[in-house]
């Protein structure tokens, strides 16, 4: 499998003081489906931002498509071929939909990406129409983003990234704030895109969906280091690990009239025994 992303001892700290990533080394291959899991503030979003070339490691090296990504290469004013290639290949769905929806209408929002690729306006229109139809949001075409619901915004965000037909998809907490039906729709969409050969990297703390959308899981600890990198099934079975990184917790809840406590994570079919207290 061809390696597309290669992080070598990457650390990142905000304003040189607040650590977000510490000594992270990992490789991601073309067509892989990877989940990055960890509790709030463990560095998942920072890792995704580095993978998308939006911020640069404070120390360590990051290689994408066999090229080292540095500020000098990416932030130059002059047009550069590699950056255009990278932006075409890699799409990023942000956690906060509102930062991604900056155009006045849904149509213009989705058209923004392809317009940057120097495609003819007719082709842009066709592409946008296709994506609107695929995502079942044609009726939102002329709506302003601020009038959309949370689920609709997320759909428009995903549409605005998919319209560029990226080979690699980076998603930051894609299922957050979605109702169960939309969540299921999202999982099915990611599975379909995965089956088509796209590389899908999802940062999440929703343990319920990761075995459905990824075969490999990277666990980030609260100390901003990679705690485990392995098959998703194995990670989900390692209760001690999940407890240590704060992804599962001791939890009290009700079953009918019975109250009991047990280790709890939002994974399908978690096991527990009823006490009679």
């Amino acid at each position: 499998m061809k390696t597309i992303f290669d992080l070598r001892n990457v650390s990142y700290s905000y304003v040189g003081k607040i650590d977000a990533l510490k000594d992270v080394s990992l490789k991601i291959g073309l067509g892989e489906h990877v989940s990055i899991i960890g509790s709030n503030g463990s560095g998942k979003s920072t890792l995704l931002a580095i993978l998308n070339g939006l911020i640069y490691p404070t120390s360590g090296d990051f290689y994408a498509f066999d090229n080292q990504i540095t500020e000098e290469v990416f932030d130059s004013i002059k047009d550069n071929e590699f950056r255009t290639y990278f932006r075409t290949k890699v799409g990023f769905v942000f956690q906060n939909s509102d930062v991604q929806l900056f155009s006045p209408t849904v149509f213009q929002e989705i058209a923004f990406g392809p317009l940057q690729l120097n495609i003819s306006p007719q082709e842009v229109t066709t592409r946008v129409e296709n994506v609107l139809e695929m995502m079942q949001i044609t009726k939102l075409r002329d709506r302003s983003p601020h009038t959309l619901s949370g689920g609709e915004k997320k759909k428009v965000c995903i549409a605005s990234v998919l319209v560029n037909n990226p080979d690699v998809l980076l998603l930051d907490e894609p299922s957050a704030g979605l109702d169960p039906r939309t969540q299921l729709w999202l999982v099915e969409l990611l599975q379909e895109l995965g089956a088509a050969g796209k590389t899908i990297i999802t940062a999440t703390h929703d343990l319920e969906i990761i075995d459905q959308i990824s075969k490999r899981a990277i666990v980030m600890g609260e100390d901003h280091r990679v705690k485990k990198d392995g098959p998703t099934i194995e990670v989900l079975d390692d209760m001690a690990l999940l407890l240590s990184v704060n992804l599962v917790h001791e939890h009290m809840h009700f079953h009918g009239k019975t109250v009991h406590e047990h280790i709890h994570a939002h994974i399908d079919g978690h096991k527990h025994e009823h006490g009679n207290n």
């Binding site: 931002a49 998308n52 939006l54 004013i77 047009d79 950056r83 255009t84 932006r87 075409t88 890699v90 799409g91 990023f92 942000f94 906060n96 930062v99 991604q100 900056f102 213009q108 058209a111 923004f112 990406g113 317009l115 940057q116 690729l117 120097n118 306006p121 842009v124 229109t125 605005s160 990234v161 560029n164």
Partner: peptide
């Protein structure tokens, strides 16, 4: 963050609108 989202979708400083 909006600027980052624009960069991520290929914006390179030259505005292209329909």
């Amino acid at each position: 963050k909006v600027h980052m989202a624009m960069l991520s979708r290929g914006f390179s400083g030259d505005v292209k609108i329909m």
